[in-house]
Amino acid sequence: MVSEPNAVIAVDIRKLTVKFGEFTAVDQVSLSVRKGEIFGFLGANGAGKTTTIRVLCGLLVPTSGHVRVAGYAPEDGLEKIKTRVGYMSQRFTLYDDLTVAENLKFSGSLRGIVGRKLEQRIEELLEFVGFSRATGAFVKDLPGGIKQQVSLAASILHDPEIVFLDEPTSGVTPGARERFWKLIRELAGKGKTVFVTTHYMDEAEHCERIALMKDGKIIALDSPGGLKASTFRTPLLEILPSRKMAEGSWLPQLRAHPAVESIEPYGMRYHLVISDPARLGEVKAQIPPSFEISQTAPSLEDVFIRLVEAGFIK
């Protein structure tokens, strides 16, 4: 992968390998992430994402390979890395039975920030995330979207250069999700590097580039648009069956058609990939006339399923 000549690299890993006994969790992974980039890190459960993130957060010493996080290598001491990274998970960044103020003071003191400096920093961050309630409120009484704002504030109190977000917007309202991504873009605009891990493809769409991991290796790395274009070179049809014929013989018949590469359920619809664009009309003629058919752009979910499951290779 070629990076821009003058771009500052925030995360750089070369041939990173992590073994647990005989098991290779991360296998010769290389990637670099630009300062200020919003980078998505996807993969099936057990693909090696969490292990990679643990190395990047200074929680795990790699078996081999070169790692640099905000300029520091694990050999410089894991503590150096830890001070430069923040971590936020929608699920466990905050303590439910502490108040907002208590949570932030606790997070700050863990990072060695105290006194007037901590107070200033808390004030500044609560303003940045748009928190407008009483800081004496218990976290358990906050709606999901507000809790998420406070979690973000807690994870960047020590002004890290890189912040890791783990499914940051799962379970919040669509409005809160929009507001959150606006904050993240602002953060990136200030030069913070954002590393997002998620199973939620709507979240992945917000990333500038995405790495897809499978069995300890990176199998794809590109922008969301680039991934879609390179994974699907032939037309993708979206089929909406009439309600009465949602299930029926048309499905196995289409699947068996030589010009149909795959047909996958997609909500109440189906996504059909044509292997030979010249035979598009022929395939369409096989679809019952009462069905709605449209040619559509692939979603990241299509990309994920195709790359990870089908082992599709360009």
Binding site: G43, A44, N45, E167, S170, H199, M201, E264, P265, E301, F304, I305, V308, E309
Partner: peptide, 8 residues
């Protein structure tokens, strides 16, 4: 918390 393939 389940990946897209297991989800499907």
């Amino acid at each position: 918390g389940v990946d897209p393939i297991s989800r499907r």
